[in-house]
Write a protein that binds this DNA or RNA. Structure first.
Lengths: 172, 172
DNA sequence: GTTAAAATCACCCTAAAGTATGACGGATAA
DNA sequence: TTATCCGTCATACTTTAGGGTGATTTTAAC
């Protein structure tokens, strides 16, 4: 008697939920799972046993199960929230104090105009070959200039020359 | 009598749920909502009335309510999917006298601490061999670090890497 | 405890940088 | 005009830098 009514009530419950989500195919899965769970309860006569002990335990169990079901349902049905994170990629615009060439140091070290050009392009990260192309001269010429520069700046490497030149405000 | 037991059962139900999600602050809200709902049922003596009519209706109502609760809970708990949108933004970096490391760019380019050390020594004009000596590692290690740096900074030469790094305030 | 990233090192090879030396024409200043 | 510097280029050689690959170890996060 009660068993039959329980099935009816659960059916209505399912209908309510189904009508709310009927456009989603997950409702089939949901119904099956709910039916299986409650049928299992009945088949094991757990409901009857539990009822004799405590109606509230049964209610709590239902609450638990359906809370879990709801969570599971929601995860399946709800379109995932998309949190848009805007990552600002910095395109740096140098805004430092404007550069003034240290002509005193230039004359002091006897660095010529052409050498200074090479030095600046070096500091810009160009290779000797690229510098040669930029200045319309041969690679060997650039090498000569750079060698002279290293000697005048007392440097062994272009990086060292750049570092010293920046200190001396020969380049910006 | 039954009222008292009902409270106890619901309390245990809450405890179960709380222990499962206790690290989430939503449990407080959840508990409050559940308590209010069931208290409301009792206050209205709906439970007693419904029970006389049909136990199954009560069960169905609980199922419905807790399904909804579960759905609501899930919505609150689901961590949103993170969608990263890279937006290029021109940022003027004031090249003041005192140097401040651009940690944002560092993490952006995934440059490690060790790589930064190598980068700084490069900019100081040291050769790979000298850097190796300074950091107490082998020449090959320095080469590996520098190669990784060039890739991360999209540079082909150390001078170019230094130039870009200075722009990004990775080095002073 | 497994995965992931960082740090370390090695070997091989090519490309680029740097050294040394010499040469030549055009300025230019003593 | 002669000595000097500048800019150009060359040849030969050595050293350093850089690319590619793979390996081991440590550390950190999950």
């Amino acid at each position: 008697m009660c068993t039959k009514n329980a099935q009816t009530a659960v059916f209505y419950t399912e209908m309510t939920v189904l009508s709310a989500i009927k456009r989603n195919k997950q409702n089939i899965v949901y119904g099956v799972v709910a039916a299986v769970l409650l049928s299992a309860l009945q088949w094991l006569e757990l409901r009857f046993v539990i009822f004799q002990h405590s109606f509230e335990i049964y209610a709590g169990a239902i609450a638990l199960i359906f809370t879990g079901l709801g969570i599971w349902l929601a995860q399946k049905l709800i379109k995932p929230k998309v949190k848009t994170v805007v990552v600002e990629k910095e395109v740096v615009i140098t805004n430092g104090p404007e550069f003034v060439l240290n002509e005193a140091a230039m004359e002091d070290l006897r660095i010529s105009k052409r050498e200074l050009e090479v030095l600046q392009l070096m500091a810009d990260g160009l290779s000797n070959q690229e510098i040669a192309g930029r200045l319309f001269v041969s690679l060997n010429t650039v090498k000569t200039h750079s060698s002279n520069l290293f000697e005048k700046l007392e440097a062994e490497r272009r990086t060292q020359a750049i570092e010293k030149a920046k200190r001396l405000s020969l380049i910006g």
